[in-house]
Design a binder for these strands. Structure first.
Lengths: 178, 178
DNA sequence: TGCATCTATATCGAATTGATATATTTTCTT
DNA sequence: AAGAAAATATATCAATTCGATATAGATGCA
């Protein structure tokens, strides 16, 4: 599954411009699957070439046409085929955790700040989800929102209970970063 | 922080070949930060050019030299500077969750299988961590291992408690995927 | 003996990110 | 009402990274 496929998926929910598709990625998929203009616009061009979406263009003065994309029936089939495939493994990259891997090279105060900051950030995300989650239109969006909340909460709990393991480590090695 | 930086980090733990660095990524960082040969070898070349690592080459017959990389003192400084920076936000991509976003287009049986499979897979990862975690050499590796375990466990718990939300959704929409 | 796996190098196309450029309209603030 | 800021909307580009592929000797094991 690639960004092309997810653009198709978003278009099953209704016609949209490239800009609106980007917004959907940000508002409803950002936790799950990130996409930038640099991948969305080329994806839409390719999908149009292949007849999986159709495109109505509205001329405008002094700027590029506004283009509204719709999924075709061929696009719907392709999308269904695609989501019936076994999903590939998660891809996760965390600079935060990679930094902690080298906690012994950092001053204890730096580690403590890093963890404090992380906990605050995750709590902020949970709070904003709490106010949204129950108001989401579909059961599956509530499900995904709750999923994110559960994972963030588990992270916070784990950090609070186990940070001493790292902080002891850092303390001993704190002279290394002078 | 990029793969170049993490290659430096791995070399702070001892000299290594490109192959051994790849193995380290797989065995100790795979949950956190993935890297392939296609990024590791070019990274090592660039680091060598910049004097951040040094490289001893051992000639071999009929194949490329074996190259052992060591971090230089300039490399150590660069690495420390790098991990003192504020870490960028996590990057996460889950085809599994993206598929669930479109649960209403899939037959209920498919959704159920998908979730069953996911729970098994996560449980398998937890089991293999359970046998390793306590035997890891450093506190910080135990910490990271435990972190992974905690997050996977939270995922399993959430899926078990809330899968009905999706399965109901899929059931109602099951005719759509005929 | 033969087969699989491990060690070890490296490159290449394709996918994706993140930044940048452009320009109008809408909304907020003072 | 003026001016600033944010939203709408397009698109491209260099740099990063992935995933697959090619090569080939050594080692282990059945």
């Amino acid at each position: 599954m690639d960004i092309r496929t997810l653009c198709l998926g978003i278009l099953t929910m209704g016609d949209a411009t490239g800009y609106e598709i980007k917004k959907t990625f940000e508002e409803r998929l950002d936790l799950i699957f990130h996409a930038s203009y640099g991948s969305i616009y080329p994806a839409l061009n390719k999908l149009t070439e292949e007849g999986l979406v159709s495109c109505r263009a509205f001329a405008q003065q002094k700027r590029p046409d506004k283009k509204i994309y719709s999924i075709t029936s061929s696009g719907r089939c392709t999308f269904l085929d695609e989501i019936l495939k076994k999903p590939a493994a998660d891809r996760f990259r965390s600079e935060f955790l990679a930094t902690l891997m080298f906690a012994h090279l950092l001053p204890a105060a730096t580690i403590a700040e890093l963890i404090d900051e992380r906990i605050l950030e995750s709590q902020r995300k949970i709070d904003s989800m709490n106010s949204n989650c129950n108001e989401l239109p579909t059961d599956r969006e509530q499900f995904l929102c709750g999923y994110g909340r559960a994972v963030y909460q588990a992270e916070i709990d784990y950090l609070q209970e186990n940070r001493h393991l790292l902080e002891a480590d850092a303390l001993m090695g704190s002279h290394a970063a002078e």
